[in-house]
Amino acid sequence: MSTHSLPLASELVSDTALFPPAVYLIGAPKCGTTALGHYLSEHPEVAFSSPKEPHYFSHDLNGLCLCDDAAQYRAIFPSDPAARVMMEGSVWYLYSEAAISEILKARPDARFIVMLRNPVKMLVSLHRQLIHALDENVEDFRTAWQLSEARAAGKDIPRGCRAPLTLLYHRTAAFGEMMARLYARVPQERVLVLFQEEMRADTAGTYRRTLEFLGLPDDGRTDFTPVNEAKKARSKLVRFMVSRAGPAREVVSGPIKRALGVQSLGLVKKMDALNNTKLGKLEVPPDLADEIARHYAEDMLQLQDLLGRDLAKLGWPMPARPSPRAAAGR
């Protein structure tokens, strides 16, 4: 890894080269990216996309893409003359096999922020998020976990799932494999790897470390209120109307907005907030947690070697390495 100092934001991008974005918060899902993205979006020198996750470059996950062309993609970024860095936060880019290459075609000097988390805790949280997003219809996590291989073969896919690859829980936490693929394309000095466990323990420190990576000044932020806590919809019908029935809503709300001369009535956010209820702590039965840890054992060791970090110190269920003598005797 290079030991030279990181460039300042003014060296990352020129005044005329903000777009395509120079920085991508690429995942993984349910690892703290929404909170970090929210904090960064309020930095005076950051132009962050809205929505946070356009998934413009993940062509192998087309159902998640919110933009049809470059003009639509450009339109989701604020035009702020004070901005020095433009960025977005599509959490499935790290998992996607297409996204990084596509980003580098558009922005060869792109920099990437990765956030990771204990795979066992990440997966159970991801499962609940996919249910909330109406991509998953199996309420029991153990059953959903066991369906991974069948779904990889195209079976038992929920009718409303936008990207079936996101349901492959046997693969969606293979962070070692994903990071190896990323490092094969991007110099390590252009990648910042963060951990949800460390951010939870020291949110301010993680935020300042990210600003340093981006070459941005500390804006003195002290409010690090938790963002994107686990939720459950009281009504799936209301959730569908909020998340999937945009064209139908526009038929009703469009004439009202035009008459009032506004772009939004704010009703969707209010409906979603009223329909959501906060979930308690998500628990994984010990035997299932052990099964997941065994499944990802080699991948976690690969990740540990790539990053040079002792992941057990973060609470990850790391396997014991076989002794050289035992390995030689196999």
Rank of each mutant, 00 (worst) to 15 (best):
L216F: 01
R321E: 14
P324I: 03
K30Q: 13
P29D: 10
Y24Q: 13
L66M: 12
E11N: 13
P324A: 10
R249H: 03
R249I: 01
E212F: 00
E189C: 11
V191S: 11
L12K: 03
A327C: 02
L267K: 00
Q188V: 05
M300Q: 07
R249Y: 12
P255K: 03
Q129G: 04
R234S: 11
V114L: 01
T206M: 14
L36Y: 05
G254I: 08
A144R: 00
V23T: 09
I100S: 08
H38R: 15
L288Y: 03
D60F: 08
K121D: 15
E42K: 15
L25V: 08
Q304T: 06
Q146A: 13
I113F: 02
V85A: 05
A75Q: 12
R117K: 03
M1S: 14
V227Q: 12
P7R: 06
F141R: 02
A312E: 14
K270N: 03
A184C: 05
M271R: 06
L116V: 04
G246S: 10
Y95P: 05
R181D: 12
R221L: 08
D219M: 07
A184T: 01
A70Y: 09
A174L: 15
A150N: 09
A174K: 13
A230E: 12
L25Y: 00
V252N: 09
G280L: 09
V242Q: 09
V138C: 00
R159T: 15
G205P: 02
A106L: 06
L288S: 07
P108D: 04
R208E: 11
F224T: 02
E11I: 05
A71T: 14
Q302C: 09
P247N: 06
K232Y: 01
K269H: 12
M179E: 02
C65P: 02
D272Y: 14
K313L: 11
W145I: 00
C67L: 11
D15Y: 02
G308Y: 10
